[in-house]
Design a protein around this nucleic acid. Structure first.
Lengths: 128, 128
DNA sequence: CGAGTATAGCGAAAGGCTTCGCTACTGCAA
DNA sequence: TTGCAGTAGCGAAGCCTTTCGCTATACTCG
């Protein structure tokens, strides 16, 4: 088994993680139900992907239970942080701010949310 | 040739795009110089990658010039927007704000930058 | 002109991700 | 006990990305 977190989850892996974050712990059948709904893939495929992910340390499972129950090995928060870091690094050349500005200017943000950001900014400034 | 933007740039493709964004238009040799510095790959590899990217519509080139001069077919801004949109969609379930809050709370942001965000927030509020 | 160097391109190999077919095991019901 | 349905696993195929060797073409300088 590779070291945990040594690699970013791939596309399908991420889909599975998202399902787990929402309904873990859960058996293959449930994961497959959601996955096949979106992609129409075979049950074997889901089982295999989970075995691959288990191998990579992206998920864990309880083998005592029948059927086995799967869980994500990284929290949504941690995964998000990794993705974000990579995005900032690779596309925004390490500037968190460039990304924030672009994200904000994409619109779709409510007044309450704007206030929330202000509050965060105030806190940050206080600590500097 | 596939339709422009039909697929996200892959890892190496993104590296090449970043080089182009910085120094376009430029010949293969220059791109290769930068790429091999980071990865130690062969000149042929760079040529091939560019031909693949040309095929995908990720880059354009001026064949009149000798050697041919390459340019990125998408701006850094557009690529960033696409990546960001995907990240928000896939990891933050569509909430731009979750992403912004997480990005900001990762630290590494100067006072000037904080002020810059405030200004943007004010503008946004004015328009609502 | 002719040799040597720079440029361009192609096809195939290597490796990773995703998919599935086939097999095996388990547990329950007739 | 036998058969069926649900569960688990493996190996290989197919596809895409990345890599390079080999070949061909163009250009430069002596």
């Amino acid at each position: 088994m590779r070291e945990l977190g040594s690699s970013q989850p791939t596309a399908v892996e991420l889909e599975i993680l998202r399902i787990l974050w929402e309904m873990e712990p859960c058996p293959v059948r449930d994961i497959h139900a959601r996955l096949s709904e979106a992609k129409g893939t075979n049950y074997s495929t889901t089982v295999k992907m989970l075995s691959v992910m288990l191998n990579k340390g992206l998920v864990t499972r309880n083998e005592q239970a029948t059927p086995h129950l799967y869980r994500a090995a990284i929290t949504r928060h941690k995964a998000a942080k990794k993705f974000l870091g990579e995005l900032v690094e690779k596309v925004y050349d390490g500037s968190v701010m460039s990304l924030v500005l672009q994200a904000l200017s994409s619109g779709k943000v409510s007044k309450d949310e704007i206030d929330e950001v202000r509050k965060l900014l105030d806190e940050m400034e206080g600590k500097q």
